[in-house]
């Protein structure tokens, strides 16, 4: 079974696979540069004390991405 959802709903400790990016502009470029292409594994590591952004593990690096921007990153549960 495969269900797609925005990266923002990934909770700490959960992992998912990138399906596609709906982001645009500089953010899209940045995410691609960090290796967020289709099929890339993403793990949610934690939430900032302010509640936003969240930290994700992508290809060995830890990235902080805001909730708002995560909505455009569509993932599949792995």
């Amino acid at each position: 079974m495969e269900s797609s959802f925005g990266l923002h709903s990934l909770r700490p400790g959960e992992t998912a696979l990138v399906k596609c990016l709906n982001s645009s502009g500089a953010l899209r470029r940045r995410l691609l540069d960090m290796g967020m292409v289709e099929g890339t594994r993403v793990e949610c590591l934690g939430v900032s004390p302010g509640g936003d952004p969240k930290a994700f593990l992508v290809r060995g690096s830890m990235l902080a991405i805001r909730d708002r921007d995560c909505r455009d990153i569509i993932v599949n549960r792995s």
């Binding site: 930290a55 830890m62 990235l63 921007d69």
Partner: peptide, 10 residues
């Protein structure tokens, strides 16, 4: 505020 991706180094 613009989009924000920050790398957190080890």
């Amino acid at each position: 505020s613009s989009a924000f991706v920050l790398e957190l180094p080890p």
